Amino acid sequence: MDIAAILVTIGGLALAGLVLWYFFFSSRPAVAAQSTSGGVQQVDITVKGGYSPSVIEVTQGRPVQLNFYRDEENSCSEELLMPDFNVRRDLPAFQTTLVELLPQQPGRFEFTCGMGMLRGSLVVK
């Protein structure tokens, strides 16, 4: 191996490490759900190459409405899985899908696309 091949290999490994860190280990700011006059906690989530916001904070024991708007046709984002709440929903492109929950336990609950590539969290306090 010559010097150029070694530098290219090191650069490729560094970029792969950066991608892994970004998708799996970087912290994302949490967004607190907004309470309506009826006491329902509500959050609008855009699905486009990921979930935005991807970390949502809610209060335990109060109803939650998550409005997922899928702003793309990418096949990866066409399904939503929230295994801790037994939720599996199809997300039609360019439409809003309502998911209603009543979180009873505090903790961090993950949600993903059907392929597990897009990730988000519901933080119950």
Rank of each mutant, 00 (worst) to 15 (best):
F24N: 14
A16E: 07
A30P: 04
R88I: 05
R70L: 06
T46A: 05
A5D: 05
G50N: 08
Q34N: 09
G39T: 10
F24C: 07
F25W: 11
K48N: 13
F68W: 01
E110A: 14
I3W: 07
V8C: 02
Y51K: 01
G38T: 12
R28F: 14
A16Y: 05
V55Q: 03
V99R: 01
G49K: 07
P63E: 10
V47T: 02
S27L: 04
S75E: 15
N74F: 13
L15P: 00
R88L: 06
A16H: 04
C113L: 01
S121E: 13
V124K: 01
R119E: 12
D90A: 15
L102D: 12
T46G: 05
F25N: 11
R119C: 04
C76P: 07
T46R: 15
A30I: 12
T97F: 06
K48D: 03
P63F: 11
S54T: 09
T46S: 10
P63G: 08
N67W: 12
E78H: 13
L80M: 02
M82A: 08
K125I: 09
Q65R: 15
T96G: 04
S77T: 10
R62D: 02
R70N: 02
A33S: 00
G39F: 11
P29R: 00
R108D: 09
L91G: 03
T59M: 09
R108C: 10
A30E: 12
V47C: 02
R119Q: 08
L7Y: 12
F23S: 11
M82L: 14
V43Q: 06
G50W: 02
A4V: 15
R89E: 15
F23G: 07
R88V: 06
R28K: 11
S75T: 13
Q41A: 02
T112M: 05
R62V: 06
L66Y: 00
A33T: 00
Q42M: 05
I10K: 11
V19G: 02
V40I: 15
V99H: 00
E73C: 06
N86T: 09
I10D: 03
L7G: 05
S121L: 09
G39Y: 13
E78R: 12
F111M: 06
M115F: 12
V124I: 12
F94I: 01
R119T: 09
T97I: 07
G114I: 01
A5E: 11
S27D: 13
P53R: 04
E110Y: 09
W21T: 06
L13A: 09
P103N: 01
T36G: 14
N86A: 13
F23P: 00
L66M: 04
I56N: 00
Q65C: 05
L15K: 04
F25V: 11
S35Q: 14
D90K: 15
L7R: 15
M115G: 06
F111C: 03
T9W: 12
V8G: 02
G39I: 13
F24V: 09
R89L: 14
P92T: 11
I3E: 10
P83W: 03
V87Q: 10
T36H: 04
P83K: 09
Q65D: 13
Q42W: 08
M82H: 13
A93N: 08
T59Q: 14
Q60P: 07
V55A: 02
W21Y: 15
P106G: 07
V19I: 15
A5Y: 07
S75I: 15
E110R: 10
S27K: 15
I6L: 14
M115P: 03
K48S: 12
